[in-house]
Design a protein around this nucleic acid. Structure first.
Lengths: 257, 257
DNA sequence: CGCCTCCGTTGATGCAGATCAACCCGCGCC
DNA sequence: GGCGCGGGTTGATCTGCATCAACGGAGGCG
């Protein structure tokens, strides 16, 4: 599929992502917003609808976004072949345009309703020089995102299909899951096809895996985008990267114990 | 194989990585070192032999290294299964301990002789607050490494075996290759097994691919670690991520045109 | 209402690459 | 020299996943 813009409003956006929007932001963003407006920050708030692109002038590398609520995906299209869904951003994450490699096309698409703050790099850096604690928080946030990228690469490099799906469910549960009784409810911000791209699996194969998880009683599905993990322990055990994902979550406030 | 330390000196270290050691460092490191010793930086220079680990106290997250010469690899070991070679660092790169996810074990191993500078995070950040240009260079460097991680994830996610090998050769050529006549000579800093881990391929499969590249006249091999790309154009064309890799290289001085 | 398009599911089939095994080679060591 | 060992190569076989094709269900829209 081509990555053309589909910014037109959809008549019925998918179910509201309560979890994602109510989530407390990360340490950097929290500290940044408590500074108030006395700082000459020139941040522009943007509200994105699901599937809406973040507007970007071509070759504009000096923009930095901070994600307040929702989920955003970074995608690239290569000249010849299939597109890829490279990275997912969650509340508190920093979206640096320069951190996405320049294939023929690169773009950021909101997966759910999302609120982002747009900065120009220069004023933001100037602000960081004035507050070493803020700079430290910014630095930790970048470390965290680099580490997440490394975990994702490890998932793609070493895990087979079922393990990848388990890793995805765990990652989503940690980032945007809400405990409901003994289960964890997740509002999936991605379509099947997008999940398949993110996991480097075929959409058909992913469908089979989800079906198998359902028949095995690991998950249940209320609607297309609403799944619940019935058996956290089993899912966590079948995926070798669980400890790393949990450790990443330690660095910030989390809804899960 | 277990990731036990093999720090003892090897009787015959592999061929000298001339390319890597003569390489000009990146913009951040260049700017940093021109500051001279008037800054209270407390940088500790380390010299690493091939296969030597960077000494790390457990759970020490507040260290940052800057790679001056040579190549360093980041590895993780998972509880159950195989180890992984997550990231490669080249001259000018910043090695932040917090940017590697915490599996059961995480360690940095010099692939060649290497010179690194060790910083504690706090003083380095303090220095960054004093010089916005230095901070900007540091930030660009982090973007670059995030982008490289994204490209690597794309390689693993979307390319087949031959394309991955081509991508690896291109990446190495851009980072540490030296033009020799119409060819590009590369001193591979990794063993076959390590390359296979990096590319998420089986060592056997990789061996077959290298043989095929040789019989196809794409590369020649002087010794185990010395290869030469005979036909840059063909190799570049067979790999869809070449433009992204080249674009990454634009951001810093490169030995290739 | 009927049509269309997008998304997801399921079955049948083929292939790229993993796995297993044997072997070679270089090298350090006894 | 003989031996052991780690790393690399090559062949035979197996399998997990991609591919292809057909179908169904859910909206959207005239």
């Amino acid at each position: 599929m081509t990555l053309r813009d589909r910014e037109r409003p959809q008549a019925n956006p998918r179910a509201q992502p309560q979890a994602a929007t109510q989530r407390p932001a990360g340490a950097f963003l929290g500290r940044l917003t408590t500074l108030g407006d006395d700082a000459p920050l020139q941040a522009t708030p943007l509200k994105l609808r699901p599937r809406q692109r973040i507007p970007l002038a071509p070759a504009q590398d000096d923009l930095i976004f901070a994600l307040q609520t929702g989920v955003v995906s970074a995608r690239v299209a290569m000249t010849n072949s299939a597109a890829g869904l490279i990275t997912l951003y969650f509340p508190g994450d920093v979206i640096s345009v320069g951190a996405i490699p320049c294939f023929s096309e690169r773009l950021f698409v909101a997966a759910t309703q999302a609120d982002v703050l747009r900065f120009k790099a220069k004023p933001l850096l100037r602000l960081l020089t004035s507050d070493i604690e803020l700079l430290a928080a910014f630095d930790r946030q970048r470390d965290r995102q680099l580490a997440r990228a490394a975990v994702h690469a490890t998932i793609l490099a070493t895990l087979d299909g079922p393990q990848r799906l388990a890793a995805f469910l765990i990652e989503m549960a940690l980032e945007i899951g809400t405990p409901v009784g003994s289960t964890i409810a997740i509002d999936l911000p991605l379509s099947r096809t997008e999940i398949a791209q993110y996991l480097a699996l075929n959409a058909d194969t992913l469908s089979r895996l989800v079906s198998r998880f359902k028949t095995d009683g690991l998950i249940t599905q209320k609607s297309r985008h609403q799944v619940a993990l019935k058996n956290w322990r089993t899912i966590a055990d079948m995926c070798p990267v669980t400890p790393a994902l949990v450790a990443l979550e330690r660095n910030r406030p989390s809804p899960l114990s």
